[in-house]
């Protein structure tokens, strides 16, 4: 699963989709996930990276992560061509 490659994200968590002009604000963890996705990291790597950094149960992480991905999909921020 890949984030659209031309999505811009600022340090403060402002996300801009240049294809349709929509913009969003995400919290610091959301910004971190998007930044990791932008570097091409897969789910396992992102999970590893965040589990090492934060004290969180794996089940909680998975639930929140896929909720967040669902939101990204809903707002056309995920590259559906790459999904397969």
């Amino acid at each position: 699963m890949k984030i659209n490659k031309n999505i811009a994200i600022s340090d403060s968590g402002f996300v801009f989709n240049p294809v349709n002009g929509e913009s969003f604000s995400v919290n610091p963890i959301g910004a971190e996930i998007i930044s990791l996705m932008k570097t091409g990291q897969a789910y396992d790597e992102i999970e590893q990276s965040l589990m090492n950094k934060y004290s969180v149960e794996i089940t909680t992480f998975e639930r929140d992560y896929f909720d967040f991905i669902g939101l990204l999909k809903q707002h056309n921020l995920i590259d559906t061509n790459e999904e397969a």
Partner: peptide, 19 residues
């Protein structure tokens, strides 16, 4: 993309996009 639209339907703010 029109970002701010007046009651006359005119763009009062907009942003260039890459579509």
């Amino acid at each position: 993309r029109k970002q701010y639209i007046t009651d006359k339907g005119k763009a009062w703010g907009g942003i260039t996009i890459d579509d």
